[in-house]
């Protein structure tokens, strides 16, 4: 079904704009693999289908970005992959292991900052360390360094309500990074930030990904942001969410803000935008 949909959305892919072909001989032993994963919420008054069966693969060390209209099931997808929700059908494998419960080596940034109001910013950032029962002393310097990186130096002792929404969200990014997880999952992490800070954070995130080789799954509403950051962009359809297309972003790994004026960038942005402008799928 998804394969059919993919071919539907292909129109003579030019050199740099190609829809990723079905990688049949994919190894499930590494990366994140979804096969036939769907989700239907069983609410009191009937059932809500949130995700149509999805098949895709995220390679190790890949920057994978998901864009899609509001309510199409992006947050649901993230919860499924992180093991917090069980899929209605299908299987998810992370590094060859089937996901049945949260797997430890992951940092998550939710749509809301979700800082604990009774912990100061530093202790909030150290929360994964406490949960995993690791030594705090070892991680405090790293936590402070991360806070400095996102421009929150000097706010360590403040309580969350004393920070703006965007500052809280930046602190929650530090929290996801503090235990140096192999996989990062971020659900619209920059939604509450102004355009300038957002671009700065984008560059920073891009740098982190390059230098540490983390696998990053990022959800966003901003198409330019998606293309700027991604190795691959997954475009989702309206609810119930399915795969409209998956695009490679052949911009190279070293990216500065100049990349945004590259014709490859602008073409891809325009092309992804088309998915949302027209009601019918591209054909």
């Amino acid at each position: 079904m998804t394969a059919a949909m993919r071919t539907m959305s292909v129109d003579q892919p030019s050199a740099h704009l190609r829809v990723v072909s079905e990688q049949s001989a994919q190894s499930k032993a590494s990366g994140i693999n979804l096969s036939g994963v769907s989700k239907t919420y069983g609410t009191g008054d009937g059932q809500v289908q949130s995700l149509r069966p999805l098949d895709f693969h995220i390679n190790d060390g890949e920057f994978f970005v998901v864009v899609g209209p509001s309510g199409c099931g992006k947050s649901t997808l993230l919860k499924l992959i992180s093991g917090l929700l069980a899929p209605t059908s299908g299987e998810i494998h992370v590094d060859g292991k089937k996901v049945t419960e949260p797997h430890g080596d992951v940092g998550i940034v939710f749509q809301n900052a979700l800082l604990l109001p009774w912990r100061n910013i530093l202790n909030n950032v150290l929360m994964p360390i406490d949960m995993k029962n690791l030594s705090r002393e070892k991680y405090i310097p790293r936590a402070k360094e991360l806070l400095k990186m996102v421009g929150l130096e000097g706010f360590e002792k403040k309580l969350p309500w004393q920070l703006s929404g965007g500052m809280q969200q930046r602190a929650s990014i530090c929290r996801a990074l503090v235990h140096d997880p192999k996989i990062m999952m971020m659900d619209e992490p920059f939604g509450a930030l102004d355009a300038m800070t957002r671009e700065k954070m984008n560059v920073e995130l891009s740098r982190i990904q390059r230098t540490t080789g983390k696998t990053i799954l990022l959800i966003t509403h901003s198409i330019p942001e998606a293309v700027f950051l991604a190795d691959k962009v997954l475009v989702m359809t309206e609810r119930p969410g399915g795969i409209a297309a998956i695009y490679d972003v052949p911009l190279g790994r070293e990216r500065t803000l100049d990349a945004m004026s590259n014709p490859i960038f602008t073409d891809l942005v325009a092309r992804i935008r088309k998915h949302f402008m027209t009601n019918s799928a591209l054909d």
Binding site: S82, L84, H103, G104, L114, M127, K132
Partner: peptide, 14 residues
């Protein structure tokens, strides 16, 4: 309690 908050802590393997 916000279920997302609990999810977050669960995802940290607490």
């Amino acid at each position: 309690v916000d279920p997302d908050m609990v999810d977050l802590a669960r995802a940290m393997k607490g």
